[in-house]
Write a protein that binds this DNA or RNA. Structure first.
Lengths: 216, 216, 216, 216
DNA sequence: AATGAATGAGGATTCATTCAT
DNA sequence: CATGAATGAATCCTCATTCAT
């Protein structure tokens, strides 16, 4: 500990061949992601991925036991990144500002999703994943559930079934984003995104508004 | 003449030989559907499908030019069937009863979707579809848009952007159903479905309720 | 006789289905020839041939036991036609005019060959025929052998080994024609053909000229 | 070191594993050649070839992108070998000895061709080659053209159109050889070959002899 | 750790041929 | 005679994975 070896960082990074294993894994994942998006998963061979990562084919298997495992890692990474960005967006608002946090969540969600649809689709919709797609029971939902419950506890809104509500809201978001993509490259993407964000936000509000019946 | 053998017709139609082409195509599609659900598309070979349809491998290509074409046919069939069932459900209510029709739509949608998730998923989420998934711009959405607009015109509810609303509602439905599936086989599926149907219906109502803001 | 039915000839040729079997066979051969030239033998399916002859696939097998048999028939027809044309050309000269007849043979040979190389090649060079190519022992050679022997007997020229000489001459012709084809579509095909014909004729003459050695 | 076991190298090269790539390619080509001759190209599967070369099927594609590419390589190899042998034969005579060189060319040509007809035929006459057969414009012709021109320049003979003459001579050779093959296994192949060689040589001389007309 | 040659199961597709109608 | 639906053997080629170096 006291005496850091002379080849401190470089030594770790590499002499010639051997690189930080993490680096290699990341390179592999990056290459795969890119290729999967470009050509689809079945059309992308391990060869391609290895080549893309500037690595020999055999090396691939040093870091991932199979193609499927790589896909799993990619899915994990996608979800993690996604969540992190939403969390960040929310955290730009004070903990108690539930409405603001929810709005931030929606907007960041739409934004992030739209920025990564291609990847999302390829990673979650192809290739018979054990657990299909970025599931409703995933971390993003959990995140939202938490927020909904907090708001409910604070009396900002009333949510009967937080999970189901989160599912609904999340899928509404998902769908609006998909629809944007389906429209193809839009003339005014910025305006379009804003329009969608607004519709969603309004929608969320509606959904969380207490029943008329109760009040009336 | 006196004793026509019991296998009279079979004898004519014959052990193995020409059948109504439609029959064959349907048999192929049915077999494919079943296998796709069971093993996934990539894992299902044409051989399997042909065998499942009790047909020689080459016969497959008499009815479908490729595996992909078959998938297309399956998608088409899925959407058509889905729509038909929703329409039917709606039509059980008088044309002017918009709320009732919407509720019927929701319930039938959830029901039908849940009855066919496996198929839906396999048919729409695998295999690099040109147009990914049962799109938001599909016939189901169109159906809903129509209903929303009619109700709006009749003053039953107010919808600003019918399409976007339809997208949101449809995806909410989609998501709630997916979530049900993700939960796995439930102890009391009937009750669970009812619960979800109720949540969705309530949600739809909320969403279509006029803004508070307007009143305020 | 008095009242020739309106479908006089047609009646004979066919009522609806059944046609003179020879007609059918010829149609099949014609279609095959065309397709073989255009796409090659392996790339031409029986289906294609049948379609080309406006006949059902099964009908093909009514006239030819196999694809290979058809090829044989095509080869036969090619040789026959070829020979007939050469004979015709020779017969335009009096029986005793051996030099003239030989010249006619050469010219007609070049001409005819060039007009049919594509067919020749496809029919004789593809598909592992039992007896490969328009053989040296074929009728054309025989024809030439006869002529050479007659001329020899008449003292017009001296030929030691008529067959070998015929083989040589025939192949010279073959080669010159092939070379013309290999050159691709020529600027002035007529002039080119003439040039080749002349070279060949001169060559034939040389070859049949008595040895110097004999004179010396 | 003193006593290197006899299987020294094999031990290193190993039971079955990486070999000199050239070795593999050659083994594949050899196997293919043999099989093509024996069964014809279409009837020879990649499987067969791989098996013949003691290699796994997939390995084939490591060395040749397709069956067709392999055929190309085989053609190349044939021509190269052929030419080399003719060149060798010619070079056994002094550069200035044109007649001797020509005679050597003819004899070696016949000899070599006869030793390889089967291969020649299979490699050049089957399978819709882009450029059909061992063409007249190939290297062998070029070789002959060169010789003819040199002799012409040296006044040994007179050749008007060297290329056309070469084509004729080459094809004469070709034909005589083919004829020999067509005759089937001969009783006295040696004598027969000699006879043919003589006929060809005499023929070549005739062809290159100056015109009588000039003298007369 | 890294390499990349070798493997061989597996898949989609074609097509000559048969035969019930 | 004619038809064309049905057959299924056969082929080329891909690619995930292994393993000797």
């Amino acid at each position: 500990m006291t005496s850091s070896s002379p080849d401190d960082v470089p030594a770790t990074a590499a002499r010639r061949r051997t690189k930080a294993p993490q680096t290699r894994a990341v390179a592999l994942m990056d290459a795969a992601e890119q290729l999967f998006i470009a050509k689809g998963i079945p059309a992308t061979s391990i060869d391609d991925i290895a080549a893309g990562a500037q690595v020999a084919k055999g090396t691939f298997y040093l870091y991932f036991p199979s193609k499927e495992a790589l896909l799993g890692a990619l899915q994990q990474r996608f979800v993690d990144t996604f969540c992190a960005r939403l969390q960040e967006a929310m955290d730009r608002h004070a903990p108690g500002k539930y409405r603001a946090r929810l709005k931030a969540w929606v907007e960041a969600g739409l934004e992030t999703y739209l920025d990564n649809v291609a990847l999302h689709d390829v990673v979650f919709h192809e290739y018979r994943p054990e657990d299909r797609r970025m599931r409703n029971d995933n971390v993003v939902i959990t995140q939202l559930v938490t927020l909904l419950k907090q708001g409910d506890a604070a009396g900002v809104w009333e949510v009967e079934d937080a999970t189901l509500t989160a599912v609904i809201l999340f899928n509404a978001l998902h769908g609006v984003a998909d629809d944007a993509v389906a429209m193809g490259p839009h003339a005014n993407p910025v305006a379009d995104r804003r329009r969608r964000a607004r519709a969603l936000a309004r929608f969320f509000e509606q959904a969380l508004r207490p029943d008329d019946s109760d009040d009336a």
